[in-house]
C-alpha cells in the first residue's frame, strides 16, 4: 500500500464526505422517527452503504412490508452498481489481487464511482488500490458518522441549511462532468443523451417508467451505447 496515494484518495473524497453528512443525518433522523432501533440504522449504514435504498428500506419497514419485498426492492435499486463495477474494473491496476478487489467493491457508490472514474483520465493512468481505499474510506466514515448524529442528536443543522445541502451531491456530479464536457465532444454527447433519456423516461407519459434504479441503468446504457456507435474510433479526449 502506498501511503501518498491513500492520502490523495482521502483528500479527493472530501467533497463526497461533505455531501454525505447531511443526507446521512436525515437518514438517521428518519430511522429514529419511524420508531426503528438505533442498531437497525447503524447496522444498515455499516453493512449496506447505499443511500437511496436505505431511505426506501426504512420507509418499507415502518409500513410493515414483508422481508422479501424489502430485500428485493433493495436489490433492484442497487443493481446499477453492477454497471459501475464493470466499468471501474477496467480502470484498476491489473495487478490488484482479488481480495483487494473484493474489498474495494464494497465501497462502490454513485459518488465514489464517478469521482474515481474521472481521476487520472487525461494521462490514461490506472487507479491504485490505495487511492480507491482512501476515497472510499473517507466517504464511508462520513456516511456512518452522519447516521450516528442523526440517530442520537437529531436535527443539528437549521432546516434551511439542511434543505439546501440536499443539492450537494448533484452539484458535485456537475463539477465532475463539466471539465469532461469541455474536453471531449463524445463525452458531451453521451452525457446529454443520458440526461435526455432519463428526462424522457421520467416525464413523457407514454414512455414506460420503472423504479429509479432501473431508470438510471436504462438511461446510462442508452447514452453509453449511442456513444459506442457514434464514436467507434476516436480517442475519448481529442
Amino acid at each position: 500500500m502506498k501511503k501518498s496515494f491513500f492520502i490523495q484518495g482521502i483528500k479527493q473524497g472530501l467533497p463526497i464526505a461533505l455531501g454525505y453528512i447531511p443526507i446521512a443525518i436525515a437518514f438517521g433522523i428518519l430511522t429514529a422517527s419511524e420508531g426503528l432501533s438505533y442498531l437497525t440504522g447503524m447496522l444498515m449504514s455499516l453493512t449496506v452503504f447505499a443511500g437511496a435504498s436505505q431511505f426506501v428500506a426504512v420507509n418499507l419497514m415502518s409500513l410493515g412490508a414483508a422481508s422479501g419485498e424489502i430485500i428485493l426492492t433493495t436489490f433492484i435499486l442497487n443493481f446499477r452498481h453492477f454497471l459501475m463495477s464493470a466499468s471501474l474494473s477496467q480502470r484498476l491496476e491489473e495487478s490488484t489481487p482479488k481480495l483487494s478487489r473484493s474489498i474495494l467493491s464494497f465501497g462502490i457508490t454513485d459518488e465514489t464511482f464517478s469521482l474515481a472514474s474521472v481521476t487520472n483520465l487525461d494521462d490514461n493512468k490506472k487507479l491504485s488500490f490505495s487511492f480507491l481505499l482512501g476515497l472510499m474510506l473517507v466517504s464511508f466514515t462520513a456516511w456512518n458518522a452522519g447516521t450516528w448524529v442523526g440517530l442520537f442528536m437529531g436535527n443539528i443543522l437549521p432546516d434551511i441549511l439542511q434543505n439546501s445541502m440536499g443539492i450537494a451531491l448533484y452539484v458535485m456530479f456537475i463539477g465532475l462532468l463539466v471539465p469532461a464536457l469541455k474536453s471531449s465532444i463524445p463525452i458531451a454527447v453521451v452525457a446529454l443523451t443520458a440526461m435526455l433519456a432519463h428526462s424522457a423516461i421520467t416525464f413523457v407519459p407514454w414512455i414506460p417508467s420503472f423504479s429509479t434504479g432501473w431508470n438510471i441503468i436504462l438511461s446510462t446504457m442508452v447514452g453509453a451505447f449511442l456513444g459506442t456507435i457514434l464514436f467507434p474510433k476516436e480517442d475519448l479526449h481529442e
Binding site: 477496467q90 448533484y170 463525452i187 432519463h198 431508470n215 438510471i216 438511461s219 446510462t220 446504457m221 451505447f225
Partner: peptide, 16 residues
C-alpha cells in the same frame, strides 16, 4: 462502452 459509462451515469444521475 464501459469507458462511456461514467459520463452517461453522471448525466442520468444529475438530471432530472
Amino acid at each position: 462502452f464501459l469507458s462511456f459509462i461514467p459520463f452517461a451515469a453522471l448525466g442520468a444521475l444529475i438530471f432530472p
